[in-house]
């Protein structure tokens, strides 16, 4: 039996919406990854090395996952869970290779990092699909799926200035209501409402570290407080418009030194 694995498209993923390719478009994360690799070589303290490894892991995972999504776009049989699985494995391999100096990233220019990770993602996807006897057909122009929009409501194209004001007002009101919460309750509320983490994941989050049952109690308390405060301002938190996430993230997570 002949197993066929077809992957169309170049090794380097096509440019994203609005993306201009060239020397000036080298992303900062690539340089940061090289800095981390350099720091890892010099660092003697194990705890500090683990912090650096965690930071590198988060960057590698985000980028690899993104390339995987782009390479797999149009293939309905590859689920997000499959992509998570591939990314997890490939990024662990990369970290091990980086730690053992098998992958010496620091000797390459930063603009080679992204193409390399794209190839890693593509090969990982091919291996995964070959193993599962799957056939990939990457549909050109499936970029909409690649950016992870997931069919969520978009901003209305013809949104008038009043609607924009209304949206900003809502976001500001939500931020002001969230400011009144206890920081820990606020973090739990944020992780659930905006990031969709389960109680177990929130409980294990390094900035929370509580029992899952306590998470539920605190979450309920936070939700009630937000709901009451928003109702007092004439809003229903259920109809959260676009812009709320940015407002909350900017206010409470952007300046966090330990944020992802």
């Amino acid at each position: 039996m002949v197993r066929t694995v077809e992957i169309q498209g170049s090794a380097v993923a096509p440019p994203e919406r609005g993306e201009v390719q060239g020397a000036e478009s080298i992303p900062c994360w690539a340089s940061r990854l090289q800095e981390l690799a350099r720091a890892l070589e010099d660092e003697a303290d194990q705890a500090r090395r683990e912090v650096l490894l965690t930071q590198a892991w988060l960057i590698l995972h985000s980028v690899t996952f993104r390339f995987l999504r782009r390479h797999a776009s149009g293939n309905a049989r590859v689920t997000p869970d499959d992509l998570e699985e591939i990314a997890e494995k490939r990024v662990s391999d990369l970290l091990c290779r980086m730690r053992s100096s098998e992958w010496v990233m620091t000797r390459r220019p930063p603009n080679e990092v992204a193409p390399y990770l794209s190839r890693v993602a593509r090969n990982g996807l091919a291996t995964f699909l070959g193993r599962r006897h799957r056939r990939i057909t990457t549909i050109a122009g499936g970029a909409q799926n690649a950016i992870g929009i997931e069919g969520k409501a978009m901003q209305a194209a013809g949104e008038g200035p009043e609607a924009g004001v209304e949206r900003r007002e809502f976001a500001r009101a939500l931020r002001e209501c969230a400011e009144k919460l206890d920081p820990r309750v606020r973090l739990i509320w944020y992780l659930r409402v905006f990031c969709g983490l389960s109680s177990r994941q929130i409980a294990a989050h390094p900035e929370v570290q509580l029992k899952p049952s306590h998470i539920d109690v605190l979450l309920m308390r936070g939700r009630r407080a937000i709901k009451a405060a928003m109702r007092a301002r004439g809003y229903s938190p259920a109809d959260m418009p676009a812009g709320c996430f940015v407002e909350i993230w900017r206010a409470f997570r952007l300046e966090e030194p330990d944020r992802p």
């Binding site: 892991w57 988060l58 995972h61 985000s62 996952f65 950016i147 992870g148 929009i149 997931e150 969520k152 992780l191 905006f194 990031c195 969709g196 983490l197 994941q201 929130i202 294990a204 989050h205 390094p206 929370v208 676009a242 812009g243 996430f245 940015v246 993230w249 997570r253 992802p260």
Partner: peptide
């Protein structure tokens, strides 16, 4: 905003998992 939210949520989920 949705792209940002997906990225942040993914990283928070990884940190919690």
């Amino acid at each position: 905003e949705m792209v940002l939210r997906n990225l942040v949520a993914q990283q928070e989920r990884l940190r919690g998992s």
